[in-house]
Design a protein around this nucleic acid. Structure first.
Length: 571
RNA sequence: GCGCCUGUAGCUCAACCGGAUAGAGCAACAGCCUUCUAAGCCGUAGGUUGCAGGUUCGAUUCCUGCCAGGCGCGCCA
């Protein structure tokens, strides 16, 4: 396998480090890590290894750096090496080669920055998984957008990504849903009802009731016993809600490979099998849990339950697998679900959850560690809350009053691109402030337009070139090395760093880096555009700049595609 | 009370998983449209990185303790 230039340089230094340590009979290791200096004068790559090494050798770091450089066999592309500051080794590459990237970008087009790995590792990415008891709200939207972009990102880096939605279509909440619908059906029939606080408010329940009554006879439901009716209506309502959720997801460009029903885990006996399996492994016992702290429970009754020994694997307390009535807890089904993923052969599992499920992370990971021995599997990304505002004023959202804002309302108001991009501009660990008025504005407050505008501007120049009958040269015939202005070099450097950024973003599961990169790239482009004319300059320079424009547009388009945001040619 | 997340310029956020002079955008002030889209460019100003210790040659980053905000804490999901 061929080493990249960075790897060659790193290797050369590492050899020198190892040699120096060996000749001083020191067993400790020192790893060479190359970083990109912020300041241009510090070269193309910088290495700090002389500092820790100096501590081991008890020598002056600058002196250590000197001997490292003397020992290293650098590849020919290294122009010079410097020792700077306390003992940094700064490496400067021969100039001129960078602009070759423009041709690479145009030949690889949509594939630039991606790696195709035929043995692509399968990864199961579970996200959204909003309960099928109502429409998705803004918080779900953030998780959805992050998850979908992460899926695109991992796919671009060669993983075989499987996008999965876990439908929580079992348990008490579905009963509540069924009852809510039944009450509305009775109401629509003119019967007088009292709608309790515990039922789901919201127009969509009435819509579901209406739709059921349109298809079927009210009397047939009236004739059913309570249990049958609850089951029937629960299933109907879940189906309707899922159809609505899928439609809303499709509106922002998200589709899943699989929708996995929790109910099927119970019905197929999968959950009970799992409990048996755990029992055989001695991971379960019957016992009582201490009362929860910090939350007053008036009628707390210590009861004996089936408990999973998650404390042996890092959890705070053991967790119940069965409720008092003997049915399985959500936790039990969730382990069965993850166990199912393991059995389907995924070496990587990533779950994206809302921050309100944070208390759940350790227990699921502990349980899975007990089952598989693997640590930190699944990887769980917690997406923090979205604070919705309008002109800086917070929305008062109340589920009970039914005044929460749905994702779809927001998308309709500000548009898919603005929603998707804005949700991607922060790390998932940070809470996100989303202002509806700001997201609608087409100005500097709104980064999505800034990026899209850069793409549109390139196309405006290309249109103009076409109008003027300018012949665009063959890529191979263009000399890109004449691009030497400050703005051109900066833009080329940005384009060059795109694959590295993608690699970092994928490794760390941080797709927000794509959005930040897109903004920086757009800034570099706008700066270039303002300072350098394309059409009308000397022929060779014009051809080189046209190439630079096309390459810039290509990378912007690639980045936006990963974010699920369109790249318009005209604005 | 405990656990997780967050705290960086007036505001919203970066800082390449310990590096060099902590960077952008907005807001403020000052400039740039007879030339490919001004949805743009360019300059100035703005900092005790919540506080206090510690580890280190070196800390926004790691550790400890506080402070503030968010989320959560059996038989809901």
């Amino acid at each position: 396998m061929q080493l990249s230039l960075k790897q060659q340089i790193s290797q050369a230094l590492q050899d020198a480090v190892d040699h120096l340590l060996a000749s001083n009979q020191i067993e400790a290791q020192a790893e060479v890590v190359l970083s990109r200096p912020k300041i241009r004068e510090h070269g193309d790559y910088s290495c700090n290894v002389a500092m820790p090494l100096a501590a081991l050798l008890k020598q002056n770091p600058r002196q250590v750096a000197t001997s490292l450089i003397a020992q290293s066999q650098f590849p020919a592309d290294v122009a010079k090496t410097d020792i700077a500051g306390p003992g940094f080794i700064n490496i400067t590459l021969k100039a001129g080669g960078e602009s070759d990237v423009l041709k690479t970008i145009l030949s690889q087009a949509g594939q630039y920055g991606c790696i195709s790995n035929e043995a692509g590792q399968p990864v199961c990415l579970e996200f959204v998984s909003a309960n099928p008891t109502g429409p998705m709200h803004v918080g779900h939207g953030r998780g959805a957008v992050v998850g979908d972009s992460l899926a695109n990102l991992l796919a671009a880096r060669g993983y075989a990504v499987h996008k999965e939605y876990y439908i929580n279509d079992a348990g008490a909440q579905i009963g509540v849903l069924a009852n809510s619908v039944w009450l509305r059906m009775q109401e629509l029939q003119g019967l007088s009802i009292t709608f309790p606080d515990s039922a789901y408010p919201g127009q969509y329940i009435i819509d579901i009731a209406t739709s059921i009554l349109a298809d079927e006879d009210f009397a047939s439901f009236e004739a059913m016993d309570d249990e049958t009716r609850q089951k029937e209506l629960g299933q109907r309502a879940v189906n309707e809600n899922m159809a609505m959720i899928r439609k809303d997801l499709a509106t922002i460009g998200i589709e899943f490979h699989q929708y996995f029903s929790e109910k099927t885990l119970h019905e197929s006996g999968r959950v009970n099998q799992l409990i048996e399996k755990l029992q055989n492994q001695g991971l379960i016992y019957k016992g009582c849990l201490p009362p929860p702290k910090g939350k007053e429970i008036e009628d707390y009754q210590p009861t004996e339950q089936l408990l999973f020994r998650t404390t042996d694997f890092g959890d705070d307390v053991d967790r119940p697998l069965q409720k008092q009535d003997g049915t399985a807890t959500y936790f039990a089904a969730d382990i069965a679900y993850h166990d199912d993923k393991v059995s389907r052969g995924y070496p990587y599992m990533i779950d994206i959850w809302g921050a309100d499920h944070g208390g759940y992370v350790t227990r699921v990971q502990s349980a899975m560690k007990a089952l598989t021995g693997l640590d930190k599997q699944p990887e769980i990304l917690l997406v923090q809350m979205v604070n919705l505002t309008r002109d800086g004023q917070p929305f008062k959202m109340s589920k009970r009053a039914g005044t929460f804002v749905t994702l779809n309302e927001i998308v309709e108001e500000v548009g898919k691109d603005a929603v998707r991009f804005n949700f991607m501009t922060r790390r998932v660990e940070s809470q996100l402030d989303f202002d509806l008025e700001a997201a609608k504005q087409k100005n500097d407050e709104n980064p999505v337009y800034y990026v899209q505008y850069a793409h549109a501007r390139v196309n405006a120049v290309l249109r103009k070139a076409k109008e003027e009958g300018i012949n665009i040269a063959e890529i191979a015939d263009v000399d890109t090395s004449i691009l030497r202005s400050k703005e051109e070099l900066k833009l080329i450097k940005m384009l060059l760093s795109y694959p590295e950024m993608l690699a970092t973003a994928a490794e760390r599961r941080e797709p927000y880096r794509i959005a930040l990169f897109a903004m920086k790239l757009a800034a570099a482009f706008h700066s270039f555009y303002h300072h350098n004319r394309v059409i009308g300059v000397e022929e060779n320079l014009m051809q080189a700049r046209l190439l630079l424009l096309k390459a810039s547009a290509q990378v912007i388009k690639n980045a936006l595609a990963l974010l699920g945001v369109s790249a318009p040619e005209q604005m």
